[in-house]
Design a protein around this nucleic acid. Sequence first.
RNA 1: GGCGCCGUGGCCGAGUGGUUAGGCAGGGGCCUGCAAAGCCCCGUACUCCGGUUCGAAUCCGGACGGCGCCUCCA
Length: 493
Amino acid sequence: MALRFHNTLTGELEEFEPLEPGHVRIYSCGPTVYERAHIGNFRTFTWEDLLRRYLKYRGYRVTQVMNLTDVDDRTINAALESGVSLGEITRPVEEQFFVDWATLGLERVEHHPRATEHVDGMIGLVERLEERGLTYQRDGSVYFAIARYPEYGRLVNLDPEALQPSGRAEGDEEYSKEDPRDFVLWKGGEREEGGDALWDSPWGRGRPGWHLECSAMSMQYLGESFDIHTGGVDNIFPHHTNEMAQSEGATGRPFVRFWLHGEHLLVDGAKMSKSLGNYHTIPDLLEIGHRPSAIRYLLLSAHYRTQLNFTLDGLAKADHALDRLEEFARRLREVRAAAEGDAPTTDSASLGAVARRARAEFLAAMDEDLNVSDALSAVFMLVRDANRALDRLGDRAAPEEVESALSVLEGFDATFGVLSLRAGESDQTDAGLREWVEERIAARLEARRERDYERADAIRREVEGRGIILEDTPEGTRWKTGTGTISAPDARR
RNA sequence: GGCGCCGUGGCCGAGUGGUUAGGCAGGGGCCUGCAAAGCCCCGUACUCCGGUUCGAAUCCGGACGGCGCCUCCA
């Protein structure tokens, strides 16, 4: 089996092998820390996490870099508007970013370089471009001269000659250029931008252009050529196009082998915007009772190259789908626990067979450009087939068969990371609530012993009022929080 | 104007020439004191109009609808 990814550079599915055997180097465009990242940003970060996890699951070592853009027009404008330093804007937003990152169960990547701490490298890169004659200076700024770089625009299907300044570009053009298509490498610091947003350079005080950050930081941590560069589709042009031109222009070597771009998230069928009222952040969603695991699951439930329509209804449904997986995992673990020291009695070949099939289908789907839909389909078919087998076998099965099914689930979760995330959420159930529920269950058990089913049902309704669902099993009564919402301890409803 | 993507059953969302995607929701049944969980059965979908083909949701053309990029938006 071979891994294949859709490469924006060629527009085709290509077989993937890292440059260095067994080691995949990835650069992912990170957030601009001028305000809290929204759910659309996190859709991208989440599939990038899926990519990372799947590569690791497939046995690769992964070195991933995600920058923090803490100096650019937006951060500077935010600082100017608030009359504070740049760092006072960016640092709190960074902190929020990592809180949300952890909430969604995203793995920490190896490097999160800040742009402001890598300005020397950026200056060095401009100097290399200068040596190759690809730049010019104008009013203290340094520009990349597209006319002198015929390779420009290979990533995007845009004819450089046909690039015409759009209304938008004309409107907010602040710097003079030889050619309107050229982009800035170093912005001269003529404007008042606050002390911590200006650096000394061979061209005077100023700050780096946005595209330059990613080129300099990726090469510093990953080398001049590396395997995968990811980002949102909106970055294809101009950001990644320019990044590629700068990097290859400076080194004369291929910069990135695979460019992977994810589509945007739509919310209620439209682009997210504050004016439409469909603008969500992670804390917004938690506030109204949604679980991180459901958010993560929903964000991962569609292929990264298709637009995903995010709705609150869809989020609730994602939660229900996750319930099914969670129940199944629990059942398998219970069967395993029961099997310990207890000789297997029945034929359970079917359980092992369905597990083997599921594993093969899961891998085949994920290998094919991370086809999550087919992968999930394989997992849910395992759930149904294995449940059927366990029903038939009375929840007894040979340990190795159970292990086989569990390992498929573990592989799934190593990649999707939703079950582990949900397990953590359950653990966080308020201790007071936990105690109260246990007491109510005991009272209900007493009622049931006395055949007072009316009282037992009343208790069931009582706990259901707090979002708790009771389940009677041969081993006793079990409880769980209801789907869709977490019954927050402080919720008085 | 240029470049590109998409339109699948109530919702989400795979598939891409002939065979059940899957999930959620809904209906019926088994099980259960009642539930829950699980299992079984059920909707027979592919924007529209032409065309190619023995056969198209899948290929081609057109229409309609939605989305994106065209210089600093994931």
